[in-house]
Write a protein that binds this DNA or RNA. Structure first.
Lengths: 245, 245
DNA sequence: CGGTGACTTGAAGGAGGTCAAAATCTGTGG
DNA sequence: CCACAGATTTTGACCTCCTTCAAGTCACCG
C-alpha cells in the first residue's frame, strides 16, 4: 500500500478546495512524514497528551472532544476530510482536547514544528493555516450558540443541516443521494449537550414529521425549509472554498 | 490626546506578553491605522457586518456574541487587553458574530488586509496570529464544555476562575486586591447559556457559601480550592505567555 | 423625585435529565 | 446456521434543574 504524493492528493481536485501553487504543494510534501490508517472509535490524540503531531484528515470522519473527570463528554467539532488537526494545542503544550475517529480514517502526519516551517517557508500557507484555524473556531462558535441558546429540536435541526452541508461539499452529487452519517445518537447527544434519551426522542419526532431521514449510516434532509426555519439559520448556501494543507 | 507608538505600547512590557523584535513591532506600527475609543455597551462590530477592520483591544473589556432572530443571545468569549479581534470573519466575508464593549475601551485599528501583510512581511508575526487564533478557539472550547456538560454551579465557578486568571495576569499584584469585573449578571447568563434569574440565584448561593465575592465591579476569589473542585479544573496555574499584535 | 437599569426573591411550570427495560442489530465463535 | 455478548436504538415513568412570570428593592441620574 503505497502512499500518495501531495500533488496527487485525491482531495485537492475537489471544488471545495482552493488551488495551490506547485511550490506550496511541494512544501507540504516535504513536511509530510507519513500516512496513518485507523479504524472507527480509535483515539488519535489523547486529552492531555503532550507533543502530538499535526494531521490532515484525508478520509473518514472524526471528532474533537473534552471530558470532565466523572466522564461527562462534550464533542467540540466533527472533523471531515480536509480538516487540519492539532493547531489548538499550544506549542509544546498538552493537548487540551482529544481526537477520536468515527469511521475508518486516513491521516497525513506532520511533525509538530511543521506549523512553524509552513509559516516560515510560505507566508501564503501560513495564512491558510490561520484561515483554517479561524474557520474551525467559527464552527465551535456556532455550536456554542446552539448549546447555549437553542432548544433540543432546534439544536438537532442545526446540526443536521450543518453536517449535511459539509459532507455534501465533499461529494459530486452535492448530497442528492444523501450523505454519509456515521454518528451514533450518543455522538449527537455529546455534540449538543443533550442526554442520549432526549436526543433519541427528539430525533424520532423530527423524523416522524418528515424533516429528515437517517438510515444505514446515511442522512437525507427531507424538508430543508422546515429544518432551516427550526434552526433559525440564515443566508449561505454551500460552505466557502477553503485551503487544504 | 496623542496616540501611542507600538514600541511604547503600555501592554508590551507586561510579563504576560512575549517580547518582540524591533522589526516586528515596526511592521505592526506600519499597519496600525489609528486608535479608537469607545464607551461601555457600544457595538464595535455588528453581526453580519462586512469588511470590518481588525483590532487589538488595548484597554478595557468587551465580548464577542451571536444572537438568534428572536433575540436570544450567546456570548462566545470575553475580550481583555491584548486580545486580537476580527480574524474569525473569513476574508472579505460577513462577520459571523458581533463585538460589544463592557467598559470604556481603547482599540488599535488595522486594515482588514493587514492580516495578510502581517503574514507576508513576517512569518513570525503570522505564526503569532495563528497562535492567538488557536488560543481563542480553545477558550470557546472550554466554554462549550461548560455550557454543554456542566451544571449551573459548575459553570459559574469555571467562569469566575477563568476570568479571574486572565484579568489577574494583566495586573502587577496578580489579583491580590481582586480584579475588575465589569460583567452584569445578564452577561454571565448569556455567556453560560443560563437564564438571568437562575444565574442570580446560583451566584448568590456560591457567594453565601464564601466561594467568591463580587462588589463594586470587582471580583475576589475567596475559596479557590472549592471553586476549582466545583469546576473540575485541573492543572495550570497562570495563563501561558502570549504574543501581542 | 420619577425613571431606568441592575439585582433579588418567590412561586409555578416545563424542557430535558435519569432510571429501567425491552427491542434491534451486529459481530463472533461454535 | 444458531447462540450469545455487546452495542445501539426505543419507550415509558418519574423527577429536577432551570426557565418563566411577577414583584419588589436599590442605586444612580437628569
Amino acid at each position: 500500500m503505497t502512499e500518495v504524493r501531495c500533488s496527487a492528493c485525491p482531495l485537492r481536485p475537489l471544488p471545495l478546495f482552493l488551488r495551490n501553487d506547485d511550490d506550496e504543494v511541494a512544501i507540504v510534501q516535504s513536511l509530510k512524514r507519513r500516512e496513518m490508517q485507523m479504524g472507527p472509535g480509535e483515539t488519535l490524540i489523547h486529552e492531555g497528551q503532550t507533543n502530538a503531531p499535526l494531521y490532515t484528515l484525508r478520509e473518514g470522519w472524526a471528532f474533537r472532544y473534552k471530558t470532565l473527570s466523572d466522564g461527562r463528554r462534550q464533542i467540540l467539532t466533527f472533523l471531515l476530510a480536509g480538516d487540519f488537526i492539532g493547531v489548538q494545542q499550544k506549542m509544546g503544550d498538552a493537548a487540551a482536547h482529544g481526537v477520536m475517529t468515527l469511521t475508518d480514517s486516513l491521516f497525513c502526519v506532520f511533525q509538530r514544528d511543521s506549523l512553524w516551517e509552513l509559516h516560515r517557508q510560505s507566508p501564503a500557507m501560513g495564512f491558510n493555516i490561520t484561515w483554517l484555524t479561524a474557520h474551525e473556531e467559527s464552527l465551535v462558535d456556532d455550536t456554542l450558540l446552539s448549546v447555549g441558546r437553542r432548544s433540543a429540536e432546534e439544536r438537532i435541526a442545526t446540526l443536521l443541516i450543518l453536517l449535511f452541508k459539509r459532507a455534501a461539499a465533499l461529494q459530486d452529487d452535492g448530497g442528492a443521494a444523501g450523505v454519509p452519517f456515521p454518528l451514533t445518537q450518543q455522538h449527537i447527544a455529546d455534540g449538543l449537550g443533550l442526554s442520549l434519551v432526549h436526543t433519541n426522542k427528539t430525533l424520532r419526532k423530527l423524523e416522524r414529521r418528515g424533516l429528515h431521514h437517517i438510515e444505514d449510516g446515511r442522512l437525507w434532509l427531507r424538508d430543508v425549509k422546515a429544518l432551516v426555519r427550526l434552526a433559525d439559520l440564515y443566508g449561505d448556501g454551500r460552505p466557502p472554498q477553503r485551503p487544504l494543507v
